[in-house]
Structures are given as structure tokens and as C-alpha cells.
């Protein structure tokens, strides 16, 4: 049984985000002969198989050797090719961090680091496979763009945008993603989209959590609390104007991310608010500087209070002045 099959949402879109980028890779590969794909023995589980079948001479399984894989990707990039490096988020960002930083970030080589199993979306895979530090680590690297699309359509859009970006790009995607979340907004790298309108508070969410943020906003509206939901698919470069507008125009800000609350979306928003001198109340939802227990992903999100119920609870507390 695939991971995440107990994800209890209305219109579950299980694993189709992987299929979306798999298809997009083939599309990009067809249009651009310089696209190459590298994996560390994960082509099947990351749905890169279509590219491997379509372009075997441009697809490389480099075995379970992540440092070499990223170094090779840099060698390919320095030769004029555009590598898409596909891996599980935690290994992608930590096993080969220095290669990403010094071989891609420093010389600003083009390359896309496509990572699956973001946050706790792997559920019971346990802490070794939970990627709760990846966005913070990638944000640290100069020249790097950091993307966290919310659904399969945007995963495809992010993959295309990453190809066009003039430097390295990190993209994280979750195991299970709901097709909703963007409400027809076009994907524009570097800008946030408003997916729900309101003025009592703003919820800024990234990745699959955008769906839960929208769900929470709809529930709160029934109780007369109106919430602006900002879909932050680009953590870097961050749309600081949208953050500061939310601080001016709404009462409180709640950030939601499937990631440690340190250094990711909550961290980026906190830095923006503090530097601007905005005294807005800020609540950061996510994993609170601990390793997560074993559990199915939805159970873990409820456990840490960033499922739809938890987000609604946090907004109520932030807008009532309690808590």
C-alpha cells in the first residue's frame, strides 16, 4: 500500500504530483535536448521512469551515492546541460548539501533539485526519512530558489519555471496532495497567490498545507472570522510585499509549513516582519523543533496542530487575543 493512502480529504490526489512532474520532465526533455535527469536508484519511486524510457541516453541512475550524483550534475551543468536531480528530500538536501552549495550555488550553475517526501508526508517512514530541515537548508544558499507547490498542476508549473530560472532551484513535493489550493491563480515564481480572502487574519501556507489552510478558512468563515490565505509556493525569493501587506491589512499572521518552524516559511516571514518593524502577531505552525513520532501523515499533522482543525484553532486564538 503506498504511503499516505489514509489521507482523509474530500478529493484526494494521491501521488499524482509525482506523475505530474514525471510528465513535465518528458515534456521539457522533448523541447530541450540539454535536459538530463539523475537519480540515486529512485527512478521508479520518484516517477522519473517516463524520462528514463523516453531519453535513456540522457537519464542516469547513479546508485546510492548522493554526493557523487550532485557533483556529476554540476559537471553536466558546467558543460551546458540542465540537470534535474531527483531524490528523497532529506537525502537530497543533507547528504549532498555541500555539493549543492559549492558546486551549484557558488558558481550559479543551472540545475533543479526535485525532492519527494517533503516534511512528514512520508508518515510512518520515521525521522530518518522526514524532511523537516530541507527548506531552511536550501534557503541558506545564495543564488538558490526554493519552491513548495501545493498540488500536481503547480508541481508541473514549478518544474517548468525551474527550467527557466537562471540558477539552481530546489522543489519539494509531498506524497499526497489535494488538487485544490490554487483556485485558478497562475504560478508565478516569486509571488504569493491569494487563495481565500478575509481581513481578521492571514494564513500563509506552502506546499500541501495550502489545502488545509483553505479548508480552515472556509470553516472559520462560517463562524464569522474572515481569513486571507496566501499561497507561498516560492520561499525564496520571498514575496515580502505580500507579507507586509498582510501585516498592514489583517489582524494576525499564522504560517503553516510541513517543516520545522525554524528557518523555513515561518522563519522567512518572521525575518520580514521584524526587519520592517511590523508589530503583527505571528504564530508559526509546523514541527516544533523535535523529531516526529511514528504515525500516518494526517495523524502527525493533527498531533502537531497543523491540519485544518489545528490551523483554525490557531487563527481563533490569534484573533481573540487569547493563547
Amino acid at each position: 500500500m503506498p504511503y499516505g493512502t489514509t489521507y482523509n480529504v474530500d478529493t484526494l490526489e494521491l501521488l499524482t504530483s509525482y506523475e505530474a512532474y514525471g510528465r513535465t520532465l518528458v515534456e521539457l526533455g522533448t523541447a530541450h535536448p540539454e535536459v538530463v535527469v539523475l537519480t540515486a536508484d529512485l527512478s521508479r519511486s520518484t516517477r522519473a521512469t517516463d524520462f528514463f524510457t523516453a531519453f535513456p541516453e540522457r537519464a542516469f541512475n547513479l546508485g546510492i551515492a548522493e554526493q557523487n550524483m550532485v557533483g556529476c550534475a554540476a559537471g553536466l551543468a558546467a558543460s551546458g546541460l540542465v540537470p534535474f536531480v531527483i531524490n528523497i528530500a532529506t537525502f537530497q538536501t543533507m547528504r549532498s548539501f555541500e555539493q549543492i552549495r559549492s558546486d551549484f550555488g557558488y558558481p550559479r550553475l543551472r540545475g533543479v533539485f526535485m525532492s519527494i517526501w517533503s516534511g512528514l508526508s512520508g508518515g510512518y517512514v520515521g525521522a530518518t526519512h522526514h524532511a523537516i530541515e530541507d527548506m531552511a537548508l536550501m534557503r541558506l544558499i545564495p543564488n538558490m530558489a526554493v519552491l513548495a507547490p501545493a498540488n500536481s498542476e503547480d508541481t508541473a508549473a514549478a518544474t517548468r519555471a525551474a527550467y527557466d530560472y537562471p540558477g539552481p532551484v530546489y522543489i519539494r513535493i509531498a506524497n499526497a496532495m489535494d488538487p485544490s489550493g490554487n483556485e485558478g491563480n497562475p504560478f508565478v515564481l516569486g509571488s504569493m497567490a491569494v487563495t481565500h480572502t478575509g481581513s481578521d487574519a492571514t494564513v500563509i501556507a506552502c506546499g500541501a498545507q495550502v489545502t488545509d489552510a483553505n479548508r480552515a478558512a472556509r470553516r472559520l468563515a462560517e463562524d464569522g472570522i474572515t481569513v486571507r490565505v496566501l499561497y507561498c509556493h516560492t520561499l525564496k525569493p520571498l514575496d515580502t510585499a505580500a507579507v507586509l501587506a498582510a501585516a498592514r491589512e489583517t489582524g494576525a499572521i499564522v504560517t503553516v509549513e510541513d517543516h520545522t518552524t525554524i528557518g523555513g516559511l515561518g522563519g522567512a516571514v518572521a525575518e520580514t516582519l521584524a526587519e520592517a518593524g511590523a508589530g503583527t502577531r505571528l504564530v508559526r505552525l509546523g514541527v516544533p523543533d523535535v523529531y516526529a513520532p511514528i504515525g500516518y501523515a494526517p495523524e502527525l499533522y493533527a498531533h502537531f496542530g497543523y491540519d485544518a482543525d489545528g490551523i483554525a484553532r490557531a487563527v481563533r486564538q490569534a484573533t481573540s487575543g487569547a493563547g
Partner: peptide, 25 residues
């Protein structure tokens, strides 16, 4: 200079990638 270096252990993986690039191209 074909590749920025300094941190040890980075060059040979990059060289392998360049050799693979020769094959692709």
C-alpha cells in the same frame, strides 16, 4: 578555470559528470 574548487573531494564527481556530458553531447 573549468570548475570552482576548494573543498576537497568535489573534483572527481564533477569530472565524471563532464565525461558523461561528452557522451550526451
Amino acid at each position: 578555470v573549468d570548475m570552482s574548487t576548494g573543498s576537497l573531494g568535489h573534483g572527481l564527481p564533477v569530472a565524471v559528470g563532464m565525461a558523461l556530458a561528452d557522451r550526451v553531447q
